[in-house]
Amino acid sequence: MRSPRVAFAVMGSLMTFVFLLLVNQLTSPGYFWVIHPAFALFQWPIAMYFAAAGRIKPYSAVASLLIILYLFLENMSHSPGHPWFLYPSLAIIWWPVLMYAGRYAGTLRMALIGSFFIIVSYGLLNLLLSPAFPWVIFPAYAALWWPMSIYFSRSRKWFEFALCASLLTSALFITLNAASSPDQIWAIYPIFAVVWWPLSMHFYAKRPPV
């Protein structure tokens, strides 16, 4: 609170929150909508405090917890029967995790560990909360690009990267086709477009010298 900017942010946020709270109670007491601007208002002094102290890593942890708390309150207020706040929360926690990892965050080992935990955690949510459709294929597809991109960019194996990425994308379409509409084989159409990526790279590398 030593910084005048932080003090101003705290006072400004509190005054605005009190004003909006009064408006909420006077105009629509049946719906507590003030929680939405309050979430943004309280982020202001928190960000100012950690920025003034140069503590970016603790800010990522505190901000992530506030976002998850906001989503939890929204979840419990409107649809308590289904804990949907867990879906974005599993992605949000990776912000402080990667911040505290430091230089280790850009390593292949971190990418492999992170991808594994992302796939397992969302797979468990899929299995326990909504087993009717295997939607885990979408976060798994995105997560696998993380270690794949790091490995092939460092080894500079661009054709192998295009080949693996095409195979991964084709596997996504095939799985989605089998899960959503097994009676109609439509996956062949996007796969036909995807395979042109490694093919074009292969024939470009084999082109005769000019």
Rank of each mutant, 00 (worst) to 15 (best):
I150N: 14
W135I: 07
W158R: 13
F203D: 11
Q184G: 00
A171L: 12
R5C: 01
A9N: 00
K206F: 02
S79W: 09
W135A: 00
W145T: 03
W44C: 02
S181N: 15
S181Q: 15
E74L: 14
W135E: 02
S3Y: 02
F19N: 05
G54D: 01
V18T: 10
L69E: 09
A38Y: 04
F192E: 14
L21Y: 13
D183V: 08
F161I: 05
A38P: 00
K57T: 06
N126K: 01
K57H: 06
M15G: 12
I67K: 01
K157A: 12
D183E: 15
R109L: 07
A101S: 13
N24E: 12
V6Y: 01
V120I: 15
G102V: 10
T16M: 14
L163P: 00
T175R: 01
R2D: 02
L108Y: 11
M201T: 10
V34E: 04
W196M: 14
L129R: 06
Y141L: 15
P131G: 11
Y100N: 08
L167E: 08
Y31W: 12
Y151Q: 04
Q184S: 12
W197Y: 11
L163E: 00
P209V: 12
I46F: 04
R109T: 13
E74F: 04
I113G: 11
